Amino acid sequence: MKAMVLHGPGQALVLEDRPDPQPGAADVVVRVEACAVCRTDLHVVDGDLPDPLRPVVPGHEIVGIVAAVGADVDPSCLGRRVGVPWLGHTCGCCRFCEAGAENLCDHPVFTGYTRDGGFATHVVADAAFTVPLDGACDPVTTAPLMCAGLIGWRALSMAGDARRIGLYGFGAAAHIIAQVCRWQGRDVYAFTSPGDHAAQDHAWSLGAAWAGGSDMAPPDLLDAAIIFAPVGALVPAALAAVVKGGIVICGGIHMSDIPAFPYGLLWGERRLVSVANLTRADATAFMAVAPKVGLRMAVTVYPLADANHALDDLRHGRFQGAAVLVP
């Protein structure tokens, strides 16, 4: 097999030949058809996240075909298309797992971070944490759903029945969730980097009620705001944009420091919460909804060997939507 391997923080990924992987008893080996590139992969590469596997193969938005199964896995899985998301395994016995909050597991395993991921031709995954997929689905446009879609869905669920939704950072997750919001009858307000007219045009094309820079105030107060950009300074800006009783949801795994802000921005029973990882129930719920939405996915495809190029383009906002690696 071939894999793009990270050996140390800040280093370029290296294309390597590795022995073909063998599944553990509860595992499957997946032949990767497509793996989307997530901002979390940048955080892994840059060393923003603590205690990664080293060396590690990044990538956790994976779609592929089951090529081998472990001794304890139903052999009927062979040849089926599955997704492999960020949450790769949980202990099942900590207080969070027992309470149905496996996203907060005390002893989790994360794909492309604490176990090798999908920037490769093959990946080993815990069979119980794969996502069954329609065999006819397009792997390239489905891959971003495995994180951008799932995390966006979990974040949106925290907004309750909010009608006016602000999305800060209009990238892979926001362009998916904006379409879900419109399908649900909500109004979308898209906040981009100041002056990023391409992203604003993209938001308008997907039915946004308003699009502008993150340095601007929306024309209407928001019921909820979801922050996808890893920029702490957006937190007080979003709090200032939501109504009393509104909620600001931080949807990323990493964010720059949040600056001090006056208590008045939080007062009025405004809430500030974070989203941590995802659950298998999130995947079941979202993958049942996604086909009904009629998602128009914006993807830019790169060959596996160009993973460093894709990461750099993501870092500098050179494309709309998601980047997807295809072995």
Rank of each mutant, 00 (worst) to 15 (best):
D161V: 13
G79F: 02
I165V: 14
V57Y: 06
L42E: 04
V243P: 01
P230A: 08
A68I: 08
S214P: 01
V140E: 02
R95M: 14
V248P: 00
N277C: 15
L156W: 02
Q200S: 11
H43T: 01
D20E: 15
P9K: 05
G59I: 02
D20H: 13
V231Q: 03
H89M: 13
P303Y: 09
L222I: 07
A217K: 06
L104R: 05
P236W: 08
L206F: 10
V14K: 15
R154L: 12
S274H: 08
L266W: 03
A128Y: 09
L78M: 04
A233M: 05
G294P: 05
A71R: 11
A209E: 07
G8T: 01
A199P: 07
P262N: 10
Q179N: 07
V56N: 04
E16T: 14
P219V: 06
D223S: 05
A26S: 11
A25D: 14
D126M: 05
A128D: 14
G92Q: 08
D196W: 10
L266R: 11
L206M: 13
D17C: 11
A285K: 14
D215W: 01
D106G: 15
A203I: 00
A208C: 04
C105R: 04
L325V: 11
Y168Q: 12
K292G: 00
S214Q: 02
L221G: 05
A99Y: 15
V131L: 12
Q22S: 15
H107P: 01
Y189G: 02
W267K: 12
R80D: 09
G118K: 04
D46M: 04
D41Q: 03
G268D: 10
L87A: 06
T111M: 14
A71M: 06
V82H: 05
V84M: 05
H309P: 01
H122S: 12
P19Y: 08
M158V: 09
R280L: 13
Y302C: 04
A172L: 06
A68G: 07
A172G: 15
V73A: 00
G317R: 08
K292I: 00
L278K: 10
D27P: 13
F96Y: 15
F96I: 10
A26Y: 06
D51K: 11
C91W: 13
H89R: 15
D223E: 10
A127Q: 08
G135W: 03
A283C: 15
Q184I: 06
V84W: 07
R115C: 13
Q184S: 09
P132D: 04
W153S: 15
N277S: 14
P23F: 09
V131G: 09
R31P: 06
G212K: 04
D74H: 01
R270Y: 06
E61H: 11
G317F: 02
G268K: 10
A174C: 09
A237Y: 03
R18W: 09
G47E: 05
G294M: 11
P9E: 03
A310F: 01
D17M: 13
F191T: 12
V37I: 13
P139R: 04
V56F: 02
L156N: 09
D282V: 06
G64N: 03
A283H: 12
G294V: 11
V324K: 08
G112N: 01
D313E: 15
V235K: 03
